[in-house]
């Protein structure tokens, strides 16, 4: 409890003891309002997830181009090897998609709240 709140509660108690119940209630209500106004809204941080997913995404792209010879060879063998490009596209879309989502939120570009 801060001193301000303590002071306010004590003042309200004094008024209440003196029989001024209306004034005591008003002091308490004003305090509540003030508290609501000053309490910061819980804001989600997008920086850390953006950096983590961004780093993972860069890592994946670097790996893709570093081993591009093996990748292009294996991924185009056809048949059961089709799973490679499909799964890779899914993995990249989840990681890079999460990065993109956090990046937009970090830049303050968000959907309209209805």
């Amino acid at each position: 409890m801060t001193m301000n709140e303590f002071d306010r509660d004590m003042t309200a108690t004094t008024f209440a003891e003196a029989g001024e119940h209306g004034t005591a209630r008003k002091i308490m209500a004003d305090g509540d309002n003030q508290q609501k106004k000053t309490a910061p809204a819980p804001k989600k941080s997008y920086t850390l997830p953006m950096v983590i997913f961004g780093a993972m995404s860069i890592g994946l792209y670097v790996a893709l181009f570093r081993y591009q010879g093996w990748v292009t060879d294996t991924f185009t063998k056809g048949g059961i090897y089709t799973a490679w490009p499909i799964l890779t596209a899914f993995v990249f879309s989840f990681i890079h998609g999460a990065f993109a989502s956090n990046l937009l939120s970090f830049l303050g570009i968000e959907a309209k709240k209805h």
Partner: peptide, 13 residues
């Protein structure tokens, strides 16, 4: 298209 082995995953990604 993947079964025919024609996807260039580098371009897709």
């Amino acid at each position: 298209w993947g079964m025919a082995g024609l996807i260039d995953i580098r371009m897709s990604l």
